[in-house]
Simulated scan of single mutants.
Amino acid sequence: MSAYPIAIYGNGLFQDGYPTPPVPYTTQAQQLNQGITTVILWSIHIHDGGDLYLNDTLFVSKGQIKYATDGSSGVNPDYPALVKQLMSGGSVRDLIVSVGAWGTTSDFTAWLGARDQVKTNLAVLQSTFGITGVDFDYEGVYGDETQKMIVTLTLDVGSLGLYATYCPYMQSSFWTGCLADVYAQNNSRQIVKWMNLQCYAGGAGNDPTQWAKAVQQTPNTGVANPYAFIVPGYAVEGAQGGDPSYIQQMFSQLAGSGITGGFLWNSSGIFSTEPTGGPTPADYAAAINAGLGASASAREAVDA
């Protein structure tokens, strides 16, 4: 059995390097389907007024996907076909969009200021590409007002019938507080399906089991299995991280802990090193499986 989820942050996926990426986009889709279960499209930035950008490229505006017509503005016009290939017949089960990144708290304040338009634009991604969730990559100032903002936006995601994931690297009490507030304000139903815990860069010292204990010790979150709820992630070659043997070593330390999934940071690192003989997404997926002993656990259901 395979661990679940085996997620990857798709850094500018199907757009990075447009129109001549280091690995052809169709090959990227094929390779991701050889072991990856969850693709997290990173990063969606939200501008004032609610427009969605894929990194620096306008993606969705006023309920319309913006495709490139002159080779420089808008996203790859082959995006629908590539996503269809990604979601058809392989290992990939879920496509999530991730909002934010280090130093981009303005994505969330812009979202808060244009909630209705952002909901419209997310609904277009849902209907066009079949996204199943929204990842919150908030990395900024933590406090009561920020917690209220994250909870409000999580509830907006749930109102669309989507689930949320959180991508923390610090401040476990802040994030568990968000979980408890979402649960309380959503009629005792949790919208957040799991936490993608950063265990690289600023989160390199994180112990996933300690985060699981923090969730476990927080009352009224609606999280039935705190250990499966924590999905730790590590960086790959090309993204200031390690090769599959390193990834396997990291996850082997968690075998038997109750943690059943993991994520990779990030796709562009893999695709940048692959042309010179570097490993493929399948190699990294196999490393997570091997490290965890291929333990499998269904994600708990969420009911927005």
Rank of each mutant, 00 (worst) to 15 (best):
F263S: 03
G203K: 09
Q217F: 06
V223P: 14
G238K: 04
G203A: 09
A224C: 12
I259H: 08
F174N: 06
G256T: 06
A296Y: 11
D207H: 08
T209R: 15
S173Y: 05
G256K: 04
G222V: 13
Q190K: 13
S252G: 13
V231F: 07
G256L: 03
A298L: 15
C178T: 15
N266H: 12
K193Y: 05
Q190P: 15
Y284W: 04
A296V: 02
Q248S: 11
F263K: 01
G269K: 07
A286W: 12
E274D: 15
A228K: 07
Y227P: 15
T221C: 04
S245C: 05
K213P: 08
P279H: 15
A164N: 01
Q240F: 15
P168V: 06
S257A: 06
G293I: 00
S268C: 11
V223G: 05
N186C: 09
Q249W: 07
T209D: 04
F263R: 02
G238C: 11
P275W: 14
G203Q: 08
D283E: 13
I191Y: 11
N225Q: 12
F251I: 01
G233C: 04
T276A: 15
F263L: 06
K193L: 07
S245H: 09
N196K: 02
G222M: 13
T165L: 03
P168I: 01
V236F: 09
T280Q: 12
A228H: 10
A286R: 05
G222N: 11
G241M: 02
V192M: 10
E237P: 10
E237S: 14
C167D: 10
A180R: 02
Q240V: 12
W175H: 05
G202I: 06
A294H: 03
Q198C: 07
T218H: 01
P208C: 10
Q248Y: 04
I288Y: 00
W265T: 05
P226W: 02
D243L: 12
W175M: 00
T176G: 01
Q240W: 15
M170C: 14
A290T: 06
G238M: 04
A214C: 09
G177K: 02
G233L: 10
N186K: 06
A164P: 00
W265D: 03
G293V: 04
G258A: 07
L264S: 11
L292K: 03
A239F: 08
G261N: 02
T273Q: 15
W175V: 01
E237F: 08
Q198L: 03
A184R: 01
G291F: 03
I288D: 06
Y246H: 03
S252R: 02
